[in-house]
């Protein structure tokens, strides 16, 4: 029982990280119809920026995280301007391939600049805490609380600001919404900025408990894709639900089934879902 509760917390932690990454991916997909393959590598760069801010410049953890968020938001806008914006009228396949190109480029660049070593963001909060009989670390609590604060902030942004609600309308209803008088460029740039910032936040939050290396974006991007396919591509609540489903499924799978095959769980779920429902769990289209 104790182990079970422990794993609930672990699953929640993992779900929070997945959630932040998947939210960005689903927003970008909703707005631009680009499956942004480079998104996971933004997560990776976010981790590196946090790492270097702390180790090279001796900044504190929170400040480093904020700087990482800003740097990544800028990078996100750059990617949108330089790659996806000029390609917005090309076939979906081309955009996908361009995203793959950006991903390969970023990973290789990280390797060239920072080497292939595994690094660890210094952990400031690794004390063990005990809440209601569950033992966990401060960092895990920070991840959970931090993720929920960010999700709440995103919620407020989307529901309470004009530009935020435009993003939501565009993301959820690409063809139907009549979006007169909206500066599509601004929406697109802002979406990339917000999405990349969320990826950076996920990296800063999870950095102290995960390893930092150039290929760290590969697995997470694919899991984020699995999540948004489960939740319906472009759906915001779907991404949140999908992230927690996957976080829990993986943690429980690793504990109770097999830890060496734990990464397969996500992909097996996806294959299963798409075998049964080829247009996703929450498909809207009819035929």
């Amino acid at each position: 029982m104790d182990l079970f509760l422990q794993q609930i917390v672990n699953g929640l932690t993992l779900g929070c990280i997945y959630c932040l990454v998947a939210l960005g991916l689903t927003l970008i997909y909703g707005i631009m119809e680009v499956p942004n393959f480079a998104h996971g590598h933004f997560y990776m760069i976010g981790a590196y920026v946090t790492f270097f801010m702390m180790t090279l410049y001796g900044l504190n953890y929170w400040l480093s995280a904020i700087i990482a968020g800003i740097v990544l938001a800028i990078l996100g806008v750059l990617l949108e301007r330089l790659v996806f914006h000029p390609m917005r009228h090309t076939p979906a396949t081309n955009k996908f391939i361009a995203a793959v190109g950006a991903m390969l480029f970023l990973e290789a660049l990280a390797r060239v600049l920072w080497g292939s070593d595994y690094r660890n963001i210094p952990s400031v909060y690794d004390n063990v805490v005990q809440i209601a009989g569950i033992r966990t670390t401060e960092q895990k609590l920070i991840i959970i609380i931090g993720a929920f604060v960010l999700m709440a902030a995103l919620y407020v942004f989307i529901k309470k600001t004009l530009i935020g609600s435009t993003i939501e309308a565009m993301a959820q209803n690409r063809d139907g919404a009549s979006l007169v008088g909206i500066d599509v460029n601004r929406v697109a740039m802002l979406t990339f900025a917000v999405a990349s910032l969320l990826a950076a936040a996920a990296a800063s939050l999870s950095g102290p408990i995960f390893l930092v290396y150039p290929g760290m974006g590969n697995i997470i991007i694919m899991k984020a894709f699995v999540i948004i396919v489960i939740g319906g591509m472009g759906s915001i609540p779907g991404a949140v639900i999908g992230a927690f489903i996957l976080g829990m499924a993986e943690t429980m799978g690793a504990t109770y089934i097999s830890s060496s095959y734990k990464d397969i769980v996500a992909f097996a779920i996806l294959v299963l879902i798409l075998s049964i429902r080829p247009s996703g769990l929450f498909a809207r289209g009819v035929r």
Binding site: V83, I97, F105
Partner: peptide, 16 residues
């Protein structure tokens, strides 16, 4: 080590 940096860029430039 620059190989994939160049190939990644090439991929983008080619499709564009």
């Amino acid at each position: 080590e620059y190989r994939m940096v160049i190939f990644g860029l090439m991929l983008i430039l080619i499709v564009r």
